[in-house]
Nucleic acid binder design. Sequence first.
RNA 1: GGGCGGAUAGCUCAGCUGGAAGAGCGCAGCCCUUACAAGGCUGAGGUCGCAGGAUCGAAACCUGCUCCGCCCACCA
Length: 877
Amino acid sequence: MTQARQSPTTIPDRYEPVAVEERWYPEWEKRGYFRADPESAKPPYCIVIPPPNVTGSLHMGHAFTMTLQDVLTRVKRMDGFNALWQPGTDHAGIATQVVVERQLAAEGKTKDDLGREAFLRRVWAWKDESGGTIIRQLKKLGASCDWSRLRFTLDDDLVRAVREAFVRLYDEGLIYRDDYIVNWCPRCQTVLSDLEVEREERDAEFVYIKYGPLTLGTVRPETKLGDTGVAVHPGDPRYAHYVGRTLRIPSVDGEIDIRVVADEAVDPEFGTGVVKVTPGHDPVDFEIGKRHGLPIRTVIGFDGRMTAAAGKYAGMDRFECRRKIVEDMQALGLIERIEPYRHAVGLCYRCKTVVEPLVSKQWYVRVKPLADVALAAAHDGRITIVPSGWLNTYDQWMQNIRPWCISRQLWWGHRIPAWYCERDGSVHVSRTDLTSCPSCGGPMRQDPDVLDTWFSSGLWPFSTLGWPDDTAELRTFYPTSVLVTGFDIIFFWVARMAMLGLHFMKAEPFRHVYIHALVRDAEGQKMSKSKGNVVDPLAIMGKYGTDAFRFTLAAFAAQGRDIRISDERVEGYRNFANKLWNAARLVLSNLEGYDPEGEPPPAGLPGRWIESRLHAAIHDVRTALDAYRFNEAAGTIYQFLWSDVCDWYLEIAKTALYRADDPAERQRVQHTLVTVLEATLRLLHPFMPFITEELWQRLPHEGESIMLAAYPRASRTGPDPEAERQMAVLIQAVTAIRNIRGEMRISPAQTLAAVVKAAPGDEALLREHVGLLQTLARARVTIDPRATRPRASALGVVGESEIYVELEGLVDLAAERQRLEKEIKRVGEAIAFTRGKLARPDFAERAPAEIVDKERDKLAEQEALHAKLVASLGWVG
RNA sequence: GGGCGGAUAGCUCAGCUGGAAGAGCGCAGCCCUUACAAGGCUGAGGUCGCAGGAUCGAAACCUGCUCCGCCCACCA
């Protein structure tokens, strides 16, 4: 009876990812599938990678963002676009420098022992040694970047781009050098931008100090030594008579002169309404000082210790000084009282050292005019931010933007292209290195500082494409299509690219910005090395396969919510990959006699149904992807493949495949199986590139790789509602019988006997597919429109039809009676609810007619069911 | 001080434009039925954070509140 067929054991019954992944990735790369062609006539699609730290290694955040970018790139590539995923790495200034400094420290050395040149050679060596790691790992992830275009932010081309940008901004007056109060990290020995300062709530002491006749509060008593004034609000009547006067007051270091000024920055409601002004160590005070011409006294140095100007406290650590000075003031009776106080302190984002505001000379970008343009672009549709909620965040920051401090006292990075003449002191900013002063010919000294690492990152979308040259790449791929990144670098990176891109290219750097959430551990904690809760993506990939891992990330990528990752979550999708593998195994081992060239016979009902479901799945996946709803796209494929294809269609198809008596049926089922599975593989490929390629190659197919195959389009014939309706009836009938089996605890081995009292509308359908019912429900099924219900039978209801399953000798009828009674009660309650609803005049008269009708139909159904259940009671006892 | 997000089954989360709640895992029962036990079938389990409101109708919209999380901010 059963036709001889290829044994499924020729293909392993478990999907083994490692071998497949190792085979396909190098093959794709070798064949040049990742390459984009700037001269191509196809429509362009471009994503620039958020460049990972060159010396870093792949963490969950990378894996997540890169997976999404690869999904998009692969979809577009299959969809006929000239797709470029532009890869690259970042020199990551301070981060990398700190790592190498730490290495040196382990050898008992400091960077100053080596000197600048030797230190930089050392960093480059470290870059050369570790720089390939993350690239290899991205390949492991399946990333289809055009590696022939790999860029590094310190490549010669990019150095040139950075200099060009710097010089142009300088010439336009948008870059300037200024003495200003900055955020200084005494440990890292560098200035930090406002964004690089983190805020943390800490407990502190609020010390009320007597300033002669005045009293004021401060949390930083040590800065008292740098006070050059006190300020009150201009409208504060309590202190009006002091304004403009200079007070001679007793202090820890004898008597000092303090001027009283009136300034709007003072809040009369806070504390005593008097504030000490320390222009050298507080940003607000700096501004106040500037407005009133108060001198700057620097009492804390770059090393975090008190300077000579601090008199007897010179050389003391700033916090030790704080303690000591309070002691001394207490001894002198200068302290009125001390209150506990909780406030935010600024910390260095890298080392968490308390940042010291200090006055120093730094380079700045006047970003306000650039921000205005970037703001406009996000509001007139040139740049679309998805999810749109982030536009708010972007706006607020752009609107309140302050000058961007771009110089850093580091060695690793883009050195500032400014030279100072040692003879006449003139400043020259230049695209090329200067050796002698253009004005006087004197010896030049280049600014020792480097640029904030985000300066070069801000040029990334066009610097990687060849700017400042007018390249084919720029013309083809700029503006890029979408930027995919996490919300944590909207200000650092997205905003800067928007500003700089619009400024230099006169066009937005990306049309869409897709902002995704963060990947956290299973408990929702941010992963960090210190917490020891880091989940290594490579370990996950090794354990469950790259495809399963990628699919997990996509499936959890719901907008606006962080992702919690754990082994169990990946395991589920590993099983999904395995399910697909076995579904393909079933198809592949039953292709004997299949003619891929042959004219396909018209599909039967199940075939039409599964094709209609496929049509819907393709449509839904495309819609979801267009809106960056990765989780919905993944969920749609998952449900379609597992439920519709495996649970139903394959089970139905087996009947035809295993029987030799209807070769035409076998043929058409084979055809449907192949076309549906092949299309599903293409639909899934961007998410699970490896397993889909492997299986696609084994199936009858056209073309050399699934990567080059077309992304599925919903069929021209559209959905097939009639097939869906009919299959729904059959599925319900099967489920009804299985339901009875399950409820009654009847063994699957037991073949049931069922009589279907078919309603007139469904009789023909049920008769035609009675074989399908018998197989799937494991029952002998008789269709009889005039059947009467046998004694000792269970009732199933499918629309207007009824199914009677004989129970005699199979179940405990008394128990069944109880169950029925319970069910009758439940349905009775549902009927009461619906009746109540329909009886309410507000509903009956005001709800739309079709809703009322629907409720009526529902009630009728419920009542019919109730009556049948009541009747059933008589049939089980 | 401003802004944003979250609160839905035991757990982790979907639920887009309002029409009596879904998935995965876990749990219970029956099955090694010739693609897959990493599987199949069946089932139990939810006053959708709380309180109001507009609506014929709310998990979804409005208001207030509670509890988490995040971002921004020059109240010393």
